[in-house]
């Protein structure tokens, strides 16, 4: 079966006064129908830009994005509009991604109206269905965003994303603005919707426990590049890239009796503007040596486990 999403050598560069910013640099992956790909990394690593470039909110610089086997990243006009019905996004901050002057109902209806595919009565009916689907009370139909709490607001955002029955949804940190008890409600909802509708997700987050819970496969990004990609369980059992290892060891564990020695990285993210060839993590990597400053190859270390590190076999 053709994967729902195929991304090949995707690049997104931004021009800045100081040079080219390599936000997404040569990223390749596929996502099968009904699966979730988690994308993790720290702020500024390009994970959100990757999601937005895939659904064509940003024009890609180079590379190919295919939806159900057909290239979509060169489309424009009506063809793009049609493709977008199949690709939607849930944004990070439910406080700023929803129009403060529209009621919950109006926000959810908007995609249905814009698509021009439905009669007025159908729109009303579908809005009812969507509100029930994401668990918004009928009495909140005419509530404005400021009257809703973060969790309910995010439910409105989810209903809006699902209005046109998309196949692929980019979830861009959908729960990071929410408290843990509400976060769990929204994560369960996303999972249930995926099971019921066969949705394919790309789940962008910086929270390792959330990504472990929701993903089938995980990509770890560092400064625009994928440094490691493998099935979710494998990543947590057997992280191979030094950056992944540092990332996992930095998570504060709630297990007070098993506080393992943490690997504390020195330094911070280097600039993604005009980066030098070679491993971008080398400047902070405790294992870096000369070979790391040359171009790196992605290697399939074991079936399905890809690592971009020239020292992976020695470590």
């Amino acid at each position: 079966m053709t994967p729902v999403i195929e991304v090949e050598h995707l690049k997104k560069y931004f021009t800045t006064p100081r040079g080219l910013l390599h936000a997404v640099d040569d990223v390749t992956f596929t996502i099968e129908k009904g699966k979730t790909l988690g994308v993790v990394g720290e702020s500024g690593c390009g994970k959100s830009t990757l999601g937005r470039t895939i659904i064509h909110l940003h024009e890609s610089t180079d590379g190919v994005v295919k939806l159900n086997g057909e290239q979509v990243n060169h489309l424009s006009g009506n063809a793009l509009k049609k493709a977008r019905e199949k690709m939607q996004i849930i944004f990070q901050d439910p406080y700023s991604s929803i129009d403060p002057r529209k009621t919950a109902e109006q926000t959810i209806m908007e995609p249905l109206i814009v698509s021009k595919k439905f009669k007025k009565s159908e729109i009303e009916e579908k809005t009812d269905e969507l509100m029930a689907l994401v668990g918004i009370d009928e009495r909140l139909r005419r509530a404005y965003p400021h009257e809703l709490d973060g969790g309910r607001r995010q439910r409105v955002g989810i209903a809006r994303a699902l209005a046109l029955n998309p196949e692929f949804v980019v979830c861009d940190e959908p729960v990071s603005a929410l408290d843990v008890s509400i976060q769990a409600q929204v994560l369960n909802l996303l999972k249930k919707l995926q099971m019921d509708k066969g949705l394919t997700y790309m789940f962008v987050t910086h929270d390792m426990s959330v990504v472990r819970h929701i993903s089938d496969d995980i990509c770890v990004m560092y400064l625009g590049q994928v440094v490691e990609k493998c099935p979710s369980r494998e990543l947590f059992k057997n992280p191979l890239h030094p950056y992944t290892q540092a990332l996992l060891s930095a998570i504060p564990s709630v297990d007070i009796h098993n506080q393992t020695e943490r690997m504390i990285l020195k330094g911070e993210l280097t600039s993604p503007i005009n980066p030098k060839p070679g491993c971008r993590f080398a400047a902070r990597c405790p294992y870096a040596k000369d070979a790391c400053h040359q171009a790196q190859q992605q290697e399939e270390v074991s079936p399905g486990h890809f690592v971009t590190c020239c020292r992976v076999h020695e470590l």
Binding site: A184, L187, M208, S209, R212, H213
Partner: peptide
């Protein structure tokens, strides 16, 4: 409500 880092659970 915190997703468990060591165990797999279908639902939170």
């Amino acid at each position: 409500a915190i997703p468990d880092m060591n165990e797999d659970e279908e639902w939170l």
